[in-house]
Each structure stands twice: as C-alpha cells, then as structure tokens.
C-alpha cells in the first residue's frame, strides 16, 4: 500500500518537472547545494574507486606507495585470465554461493511460513533467528571455532554421540566449505526470514479466508495461493543472497584463512593476498575488475527485477 503512494509521488513530481516548470532560481540552487555534500563523497569514495580500479588494472601499480607506476596495457588481464590460482578462487566463491544460497532461501522461507501461523510466539521466534545476525563476524567465528574444535568441540562430540567418526571439520577441504556454510546459515538466515515475514504480511487476509471457506487444507492453500503471491519476494531474496554470498571473505578468512593450503580461498581473499600481501596492486585490480564484472551482471538482474516488482506493486 505504502509503495503505491510513494511511487505516485515520484511520478507526479517527474511529470511536473518534465512539464517545463524548473522552478525559481533559488529552488534550483537549493537543490544543488543540498545534493552537493553527498555527491562529493559519492564521487570520491564510490564512483572514484570504480574508475580508479579500472585505470589501475592497466598499470604496474603497487600497494606500498600511491601512484600508478608504469603502463602495461592488457598484461595484467592477460596474466589474471590465465592464472589458475585466480580461477580456482573464483570457483571457491561460486561453490560457496551454491552451498549457502539454497539453504538460506529455503530455510528462511520455511521458518517464515511456519512462524506466520503463530500468534504471540512469533516475536520470540523472530528474535531468536535474527539475533545472530547482529553479532560481529569475529564473535561468530570464535564461537564456531570452538564448536568445531577437533576432539574437544561440541560438533565432533555430536558426531560421536550418533556413532559417526567425526570429520576434520576445518582441516579437510570438502568439510571446510560445509562448516563455513553452516556457520553462515546460522548467522544470516534471520535476515532473509524477516524479509519473508514482511512479504507474507502483504498477502491479503481475505485470500486465506476464501481458501478456508472453500475447504482448502493448509498445504493446498500454501502451494496454490501463498507461494505464487510470494514469488516476487522469493526472487528478490534469492538475488540478494547470491550477491551477499558472492562477496564471501570475512568468515572464510577467519575460519580457514583459505586453507588447507589455498583450497578454500575465495576470490576476495585472492585479491587481498595479491594486492595487500604481495603488493601487486595493478594485478589485483585486474582481478577485482573481472570479479566485479561477474557481480555486476548479478546486480543488474537484481536491479531490473526490483524495478519490475516495484512497478507491479505500484500499479
């Protein structure tokens, strides 16, 4: 409902400005003066880095001193695109995204659908699932390093309790991905859960009523009515999740530091290692740009879907 009003406001304002009424001179001046502080910061710290990153990627820049160094043309791109370290780190990022996105979307949706049924307990459930999300990453990783600790941790202990040999949760590549993914699900599922709860609020009550009067059972109501109505939210949460998972660095860096070896190193850590530990800034900038291009494609899809669904709600 609120969206309708807001969207109308914007389009109404646009119509008037298009109607060649640019307003008196001090309105023009006030508009620019009020916009200016943000635009300066935006140019310096968001647009600037994007442009500078592109420039740097064509130079032999280093992190030890500012400045660009010698122009090297496409050399950085040539060596990045043929670097097996770079591509395997891209692979790790994609694998992590694949491991985390389905559970983070499906579990959150599942929790929201169940919680929607509850009356007073809903606030409590929301609190419990969302609370981990406000913890700093270092607290989360300290807690999970303890839970996963070989021999002494709670999780290996549970494996033994059900009669399974406890795996080396962080020391073995296959398990390291799963362990960090599980941590991520625990940490961030509450965010998606809240988005789904909000989406469910938008489903009109009388739809449920009509379904109940027609004798539909809860499962039928869910698959026939609620999920189709919730589709835009599902799509948006999925896109946001892919974008968030693709930027994996913190948890992985603190839990495994990319190890064992570099077998779990995500691309953001590859950039960190080459740019800040090896000081090869130009080379790392080229890696940033290739990675950025991939994320940009996903962002663009998200962006278009978001506009699309805003338009639908507004209409």
């Amino acid at each position: 409902m609120a969206t309708t009003i807001i969207d109308d406001g914007v389009s109404a304002a646009r119509v008037t400005s298009a109607g060649n009424r640019s307003g008196p001179r001090d309105e023009h001046r006030a508009g620019w003066l009020l916009s200016l502080p943000f635009l300066v910061l935006y140019l310096l710290f968001l647009v600037g880095p994007a442009v500078y990153g592109i420039v740097m990627s064509f130079f032999n820049a280093t992190t030890v001193r500012p400045g660009l160094g010698k122009a090297v043309g496409l050399d950085n791109y040539r060596s990045i695109l043929t670097s097996s370290d770079f591509w395997s780190s891209m692979g790790h990022t994609v694998w992590f995204t694949t491991l985390t996105t389905p559970p983070l979307v499906i579990l959150a949706l599942f929790f929201a659908l169940l919680a929607e049924r509850l009356h007073r307990a809903k606030a409590l459930v929301r609190f419990i699932f969302f609370a981990p999300f406000v913890l700093p990453v270092t607290s989360v990783t300290l807690i999970f390093l303890w839970l996963y600790a070989p021999e002494v941790g709670l999780v290996p202990h549970w494996f033994e309790a059900v009669g399974l040999p406890p795996p080396n949760l962080l020391g073995e590549t296959k398990w390291a991905f799963i362990s960090v993914a599980a941590l991520t699900v625990w940490w961030t599922v509450g965010f998606n859960f809240v988005l789904f709860l909000a989406g469910l609020q938008e489903v009109p009550r009388d739809v449920y009523e009509a379904a109940a009067i027609d004798g539909a059972n809860p499962v039928r109501t869910l698959t026939g009515i609620v999920l189709p109505l919730l589709r835009p939210t599902v799509v948006l949460v999925t896109m946001l999740q892919i974008l968030a998972s693709m930027q994996i660095f913190n948890q992985m860096y603190l839990m495994t530091a990319g190890g064992p070896g570099t077998s779990t190193r995500p691309v953001m850590e590859f950039i960190y290692d080459t740019g800040f530990s090896d000081y090869r800034a130009g080379y790392a900038a080229a890696a940033t740009m290739v990675y950025f291009a991939l994320v940009l494609v996903v962002s663009l899809v998200w962006f278009l879907l978001r506009r699309q669904s805003n338009k639908e709600v507004g209409a």
Binding site: S35, V47, G53, T63, M268, I271, A281, S299
Partner: peptide, 26 residues
C-alpha cells in the same frame, strides 16, 4: 535532477567491499 537521480541509482549496482583495493589506494 533527473540526471543526479539516475547517477545515484547506478551506485546501487556497486556492491560493498569489492572495490576495497582501489578505495584503499585513494
């Protein structure tokens, strides 16, 4: 105004920490 609006809107496409390296240089 329309130009500024579109210019800032485009910023939504630049995700968080990916540009850490060039930002660090700046």
């Amino acid at each position: 105004r329309g130009g500024v609006f579109a210019f800032v809107l485009a910023g939504l496409l630049i995700p968080g920490q990916i540009l850490a390296l060039p930002l660090y240089q700046i």
